[in-house]
Amino acid sequence: MPTLSLQSFPLPLIGLAAFSGTGKTTLLEKLIPLLCTKGLNIGIVKASHHSVDPDTPGKDSYRLRRAGSSQLLLSTPERSICYTEKSGHTDPELMNELQLLDCSRLDLIIVEGFRDAAFPKIELHRQGLDRPLLYPEDPNIIAIAWDIPLTDNPGLPQLNLNSPEQIAEFIYRYCFKEIAQ
C-alpha cells in the first residue's frame, strides 16, 4: 500500500499560515460559513501549542482515558469525539493528524497552524504586528492576505485580510478549479 503524503492526500488541503495574534481563528470563523454556502463540508485541523483536555474529570470517558485507553471514541446523538493519547511531548505531524479525520464526510480541509509543513497555504499578514513575511522562505505560500497592501510585489495573489468573501472565493477557485471553471 502506498504511503499517504500531503501531496497525495485525497482531499483539497489548504492552510492559513501566520504568526500568533494575526487572526487565523477569527478569519476561519468567517470563512467556514461562506464555504459551507457553496455546499462544502469543511474539516479543520488546528494546531495548538497548549495542552488542552476538553473532557470532564469524573465522567466515564475521562475515567476510561485515565485508565489507559490509547483511543477513546465518545459517541452522542449530536457528535462523536475521538481522543487519541500520545506518548511523549513531541510536536504532532500534520499527516498523522489528517489521518484521524473521516475524509468520506468532507470536501475540503483547512489547516490552522503547522506552518512548517509542505502544503499550500495562504499567508496572513498584519502590518501592525511588525512580523516578517513568511513567503520569501516558504515556497508553499500560494497567496498573501494583508490588512495594508504590501509595498513590494511578491509575485503571488494578494487578498484583503478584511474581506473574508474574497478569501473564500480564492480558496474555492484554488481547491476546485476544475469544478469552478
Rank of each mutant, 00 (worst) to 15 (best):
Ile14Cys: 05
Glu137Met: 12
Lys121Pro: 02
Ser87Lys: 13
Gly21Ile: 07
Leu156Arg: 10
Ala17Glu: 02
Leu28Thr: 07
Ala180Pro: 00
Glu29Met: 11
His50Pro: 00
Ala145His: 06
Asp152Thr: 14
Gly21Asn: 02
Leu40Trp: 05
Gln71Thr: 13
Ile109Arg: 03
Ala47Ile: 07
Pro164Tyr: 02
Ala168Pro: 01
Ile42Lys: 04
Arg65Ile: 03
Glu169Gln: 14
Asp91Trp: 01
Pro12Gln: 03
Gly43Val: 01
Ile44His: 07
Arg65Cys: 03
Gly15Ile: 08
Ile141Lys: 06
Gln158Phe: 05
Ser87Ala: 13
Ile110Ser: 12
Met95Thr: 09
Ile42Tyr: 01
Ala47Glu: 11
Glu29Tyr: 13
Pro54Ile: 15
Leu40Gly: 06
Asn96Cys: 08
Arg131Asn: 06
Glu85Cys: 13
Arg115Asp: 02
Asn153Arg: 12
Lys30Gln: 15
Asp152Asn: 13
Cys175His: 04
Lys30Pro: 00
Gly113Val: 06
Leu101Ala: 09
Ile179Gln: 12
Trp146Cys: 12
Leu4Ile: 15
Ala168Arg: 06
Tyr172Asp: 00
Ser104Phe: 07
Thr22Arg: 02
Ile42Glu: 00
Ser61Pro: 07
Asp138Ala: 10
Met1Trp: 08
Ser163Tyr: 04
Ser69Trp: 00
Gly113Trp: 07
Cys103Gln: 13
Leu72Ile: 15
Ala180Met: 03
Glu169Leu: 12
Ala67Pro: 02
Ser87His: 10
Asp60His: 11
Leu28Gln: 04
Ile44Met: 14
Ala143Tyr: 04
Gln7Ser: 13
Leu64Gln: 14
Leu108Pro: 04
Glu97Ser: 11
Lys30Leu: 12
Leu156Ser: 02
Pro10His: 08
Ser61Val: 12
Ser5Cys: 11
Thr151Gln: 15
Ser163Gly: 05
Asp107Phe: 06
Leu40Arg: 05
Ile142Ser: 09
Thr22Leu: 00
Gly58Gln: 11
Leu106Asp: 01
Leu11Asp: 02
Ser70Ile: 12
Lys59Met: 12
Ala143Glu: 00
Lys38Glu: 06
Leu11Met: 07
Ser104Val: 05
Lys24Asn: 06
Thr84Pro: 01
Pro132Arg: 10
Leu31Gly: 06
Cys36Met: 15
Asp152Pro: 03
Ile32Gln: 01
Ile144Thr: 05
Leu31Asn: 08
Asn160Arg: 11
Leu129Ser: 01
Asn41Cys: 10
His49Asn: 09
Met1Phe: 10
Lys59Gly: 03
Asp147Ala: 13
Ser87Cys: 09
Gln99Trp: 01
Pro92Gln: 14
Ile167Gln: 04
His125Cys: 05
Asp102Trp: 03
Cys36Thr: 15
Thr26Cys: 03
Arg173Lys: 11
Asp107His: 14
Lys177Pro: 01
Asp130Met: 13
Phe119Arg: 03
Ile144Trp: 09
Pro154Cys: 09
Leu108Asp: 01
Ala143Cys: 08
Arg131Pro: 00
Cys175Leu: 07
Cys82Asp: 00
Ile144Cys: 14
Phe119Met: 04
Lys121Ala: 03
Ser20Cys: 11
